[in-house]
């Protein structure tokens, strides 16, 4: 039990919080057919972090998050600029921008790599979930012990904050967001400000992606923006049910993925453990696969009338 408290409780909680936050936003991305904006943003977090490191010279979380946030906004701006001024298709514009910025990040990283920076591409991709150890978490009693709680890894607090902000913003904006997702023209006609809501959504995606990036790596972010929401989309025709399903799927994949990564190799007789972030995303993908095969509303046109 104490082993679980010390090594598994915090990473699992962080994974669950981040997965559910990303899945919540993912519902709207999938509905708007903008799923890949999450992919683009998590790629450009790398150059943002590298540049902020080069400017400040320290690897502090706040500077990193600021850098990644700025680069996310720069990306969205560049995509819009190329799309509008160059009359380039949106997905192609996205492909041009995020690959180029990622390449810039890789170049800057390797250029200064010799100076012994503790930052590498793999870390950015896989994250470092397993390193979130709660040293004072020795037993159930630590959960109510202020001294032990003060020793909780800071990533947990940050993930919780970001999750809270996202939930509050979504609750506040929910009418506008839903309206803009289904019928942007109508939303504009009743002054629901679809463009502004778009920007808020992208900003929230960026914030969630960056918070997740530090703790769990970018691969899990992309998976969680898409897989649970897409699977939920195949379960129901009602948006509120879809959100509930996506939250369930995100939580289940985080818990199962983490447990399989930590203990799965042991069951097979290996010593080592798998990448938890990778396993969580894999489980999310498997859930989506099951939904594609069995989901009651998987067809293109609702074959049966929604109940």
């Amino acid at each position: 039990m104490s082993e679980f408290m010390m090594f598994s409780l915090v990473p699992m909680t962080v994974a669950v919080i981040i997965s559910m936050t990303c899945a919540l936003l993912g519902n709207f991305l999938v509905l708007r057919r903008q799923s890949l904006i999450g992919d683009a943003i998590s790629h450009v977090a790398l150059p943002g972090i590298v540049v902020s490191f080069l400017l400040t010279g320290v690897l502090s979380s706040s500077a990193m998050m600021l850098g990644a946030g700025v680069s996310a906004l720069v990306t969205v701006g560049m995509i819009e600029l190329i799309r509008r001024l160059g009359r380039v298709e949106a997905s192609a514009a996205m492909g041009v921008v995020f690959t180029s910025l990622f390449a810039l990040g890789v170049l800057l990283l390797e250029w200064h790599g010799a100076s012994g920076v503790h930052l590498d591409v793999e870390h950015a991709l896989y994250g470092n979930l397993e390193s979130l150890i709660w040293f004072d978490g020795t037993s159930l009693a630590s959960l109510v012990d202020p001294a032990a709680l003060a020793d909780l890894p800071p990533q947990l607090g940050r993930a919780a904050w970001v999750g809270l902000v996202v939930v509050i913003m979504l609750v506040v904006l929910r009418r506008h967001l839903v309206l803009g997702s289904f019928d942007p023209e109508f939303a504009a006609s009743v002054s629901a400000r679809p463009a502004l809501v778009d920007l808020v959504l992208v900003t929230l995606v960026a914030i969630a992606a960056i918070a997740a990036f530090e703790a769990v790596g970018s691969i899990i972010v992309i998976a969680m923006f898409i897989c649970p929401a897409a699977a939920a989309r195949l379960m129901t025709n009602r948006l509120d049910h879809q959100v509930a399903w996506s939250q369930l799927f995100a939580m289940v994949s985080a818990v199962i993925g983490y447990l399989v990564a930590g203990h799965g190799p042991g069951w097979l007789g290996f010593e080592a453990s798998f990448s938890a972030a990778g396993m969580i995303a894999t489980v999310a993908g498997l859930i989506l696969m099951l939904a594609c095969l069995l989901g009651p509303r998987r067809g293109r046109i609702g074959a049966t009338v929604a109940g």
Binding site: R33, D39, L125, A261, G278, A281, T282, G295
Partner: peptide, 28 residues
């Protein structure tokens, strides 16, 4: 082709799931 999901969601789901599984295999 066979579900109501758009191609963007299909692309995102496949790329993240496959890549994640690859990452798991790399840790192996």
């Amino acid at each position: 082709d066979h579900t109501r999901l758009g191609e963007d969601a299909a692309i995102g789901a496949v790329l993240s799931t496959f890549f994640a599984f690859g990452v798991v295999l790399i840790t192996v």
